[in-house]
Simulated scan of single mutants.
Amino acid sequence: MPINKTTISDVAKHARVSKSTVSQFINERFDYMREETRERIEKAIKELNYQPNNVARSLKLKSTATIGVVVANILHSFSTQVIRAIEDKLNENDFSTIICNADDEPAKEKKYIETLLGRQVDGLIVFPTSGNQGLYKSLEDSNFPIVFVDRYVSDLNVDTVLLDNEKAIHLAVEHLLNNGYKDIAILTTSLENAVVPRLERIQGYRSAMERFELPLREDYIKSLDLSVMKNGISKLFQLEKPPQAIVSGNDLSLMEFLKYVSEHNVKIGADVGLVTIDEIPYAGIHNPPLTTIAQPAFEIGEKAVELLLHKFDSNKHNQPKIYRFDPSIIVRKSSEKAGAKL
């Protein structure tokens, strides 16, 4: 396909205006431009199929109309859903999106952020890892537009959007109790990197045990790397008093649990109850269908974009804060005790 070599001079000549007037039109400076002039320029651009030099334009305006999104781990279903909402909302507002996956590695996260800044993105939406506090502090100090999603970073004053994780666990435990389960364990991925949702969900489990006056057993709390999780699950079921039900802290720990029960012929609903955090695509078609605690992923993504775009308005300066969204429970048969009816 041949490259279109139409220039701004060609458009100006075709529309019978000056080059500076065409430039003002492209940069949306219409204050002193007659409607008839605007229509002639717009018609000339369409007829000549003129493509403005957006790179040169962005350098002049000091804007690239691009937002960088850095996700801690794109394998999580929740992350994928939120990113989709972010991309949709930014597109509605004429922003392009560059998405980077940090694989839960602070060094990789730092590299991506520096690369995005080098490309002059107008702002960042980040699912932060536990590292890079210094980098984020420098962005905060320079008033660079940034919003955190799913996790906050201690000692930083940055707008953050995330789930009410403690409430999510309370919902799960209460539902299992109402269905006749009392010995309830929790299974999450490792706490080694101090990932906020995992820490809060473990704390939520502890407070739920207290709230519902259940004994807190430390051997019912499993926070493990995925590589050793099945072994940890095996130890749970080898206890003298194994749990009657499991709360899975996220979709990755759920996958390990489902592998274990499949390999050991443990029947969900009959042998063990299950509630998992995060609605996943196969929850409704699994046998049995899985009870989930759903996050409002699209609302969270849209709120993150709203907060970021708000920062571009020089007339609006609100104090950054943490916004928590309520979870909801989607009841299916995995949490139904054998012989009971929901």
Rank of each mutant, 00 (worst) to 15 (best):
Y112M: 04
L117I: 11
M255W: 04
D225I: 07
D225K: 12
I86Y: 08
V153Y: 05
F257E: 08
V153M: 13
I280M: 06
N101A: 01
V71L: 09
K60M: 07
D225N: 11
I83G: 10
I186Q: 02
F30P: 03
Q133V: 08
F257N: 12
V147F: 00
Q133A: 12
G301C: 00
Y136F: 15
G204P: 08
P296V: 04
K333M: 05
A102I: 13
L156E: 08
E92S: 05
S18C: 11
N231K: 15
M229P: 00
L342N: 13
L309P: 09
L187T: 07
A65P: 09
H310M: 08
I221G: 05
S262D: 12
L90C: 02
L90K: 12
D10V: 13
G339V: 01
N73Q: 15
P2D: 05
L258Y: 04
A168N: 01
V331M: 05
K62F: 05
H170W: 03
E87M: 04
N250Y: 07
D103C: 06
T21K: 06
A297V: 02
V158R: 02
K321V: 05
E336F: 02
R201T: 01
D31E: 14
N143T: 11
D141C: 02
E299Y: 00
F237W: 03
R29L: 00
G131N: 01
A304M: 02
L124C: 13
V55C: 00
Y50D: 08
Y323M: 05
T292C: 03
I83C: 02
V228H: 04
A56F: 06
E42Q: 09
N157D: 10
P215R: 14
N54E: 15
G284P: 09
Q81E: 14
K230P: 01
A194K: 13
R40A: 11
K137N: 01
D104G: 05
E87W: 08
D271S: 09
Q319Y: 07
P289S: 11
K43Q: 06
K5N: 14
L252S: 01
N315T: 15
E47W: 10
V331R: 03
K62L: 03
K19N: 03
S262L: 14
V22L: 09
N49R: 10
Q133S: 10
H175N: 15
I277R: 10
V17S: 04
A107Y: 10
F298Q: 04
F127P: 07
T97A: 07
T64I: 06
V272N: 07
S227P: 07
G204M: 13
V147W: 07
E336L: 15
N179D: 01
E279I: 12
E174C: 03
A185G: 09
S248I: 12
A245E: 07
I86T: 06
E174G: 09
K60G: 10
V69T: 11
Q244P: 10
T6W: 14
T129F: 03
G301A: 07
L162Q: 14
R332T: 01
P128A: 00
R206Q: 12
N318A: 09
I113K: 02
L117G: 11
Q203W: 13
K267Y: 03
S262Y: 15
N165A: 03
V272M: 02
